[in-house]
């Protein structure tokens, strides 16, 4: 009888020990289970939050401007785990349209785990750009969400739009429209403005993804870097960009506009 009681106490003690060990040790991930990971694209201009239509900013060549639209595709997300393995988000759920004032998040469904790096494509890859129309649904529907992000005359998606006004634009309405696109062409090579972004997440906080909790990777996206970079864009020189070739300097610039700010675990 007494022996039995001891056994029970021992069992309870052992159980408590394990439980406390578990608490103090690394989080146990079930890599077979998937959980939500959101990626927030927080548009800014230099050191300030992007404010459409009202705030005035200045580019590297000293021209002042206002932004009326900032919209871009992010797609083909990949995440690197602490053990170095890479998880590729299935393509059919890996396209997002980010628009200032409308949508700033890409919601991913990824295996539980801790991740050290994220990569994604700005734009729509050549495979999807040449895919059968029946596969272009949701944000890729040229008669739906993509209606204003699609060139009909030169079949292909517009990857990024930055539009606004600048007194430096000579036209009466002072409007500038910078549209970037071009996936490399169907059969003849054409300019390719697809950019793959890879960001380290270790310095500013790794996301620890687990079911029943929220995890958010917060990225800062600097609209000023669409304009400033290896080519400093001038509104006086070029007010309208509506085809792949003149969009090349834009794409080279905006390849550097993303940075990891922090992670909310």
């Amino acid at each position: 009888m007494k022996k039995n009681i001891i056994k029970v106490w021992a069992a309870i003690g052992l159980a408590l020990l394990f439980a406390s060990c578990k608490k103090d040790g690394p989080i146990a991930y079930n890599s077979a289970a998937k959980a939500e990971l959101s990626v927030e694209f927080d548009n800014i201009v230099g050191g300030a939050d992007l404010q459409l239509n009202t705030a005035t900013y200045t580019n590297a060549v000293g021209e002042s401007f206002k932004v009326t639209k900032m919209k871009y595709y992010v797609s083909n997300f990949k995440l690197t785990k602490t053990d170095g393995t890479i998880y590729t988000v299935p393509q059919d759920s890996s396209y997002f349209l980010i628009e200032e004032g409308v949508d700033d998040e890409a919601i991913l469904n990824v295996p539980e785990g801790e991740y050290t790096a994220i990569s994604f494509v700005v734009g729509v890859d050549s495979l999807r750009n040449t895919m059968d129309i029946s596969r272009r649904t949701g944000v890729l529907d040229p008669a739906g969400a993509a209606a204003d992000m699609y060139w009909g005359w030169n079949s292909g998606y517009i990857f990024l739009k930055l539009e606004g006004t600048s007194p430096s634009v000579a036209a009466a309405d002072h409007v500038f429209m910078y549209h970037s696109g071009g996936f490399g062409g169907y059969s003849t090579p054409t300019p390719n403005n697809l950019k793959t972004i890879t960001l380290d997440l270790t310095a500013r906080g790794t996301p620890k993804v687990k079911q029943n909790k929220t995890t958010n990777i917060h990225l800062m996206v600097d609209a000023l870097k669409v304009l400033n970079g290896s080519t400093n864009m001038s509104f006086a020189a070029v007010a309208m960009i509506h085809s792949p070739l003149p969009g090349v300097p834009l794409a080279n610039n905006y390849a550097n506009m993303f940075r990891h700010d922090h992670t909310e675990n």
Partner: peptide
């Protein structure tokens, strides 16, 4: 030759 797939062709004249 800006359009490579007949299924995408109709978009061009409709939106032009």
């Amino acid at each position: 030759g800006g359009i490579a797939d007949l299924d995408l062709q109709s978009i061009a004249p409709i939106t032009n």
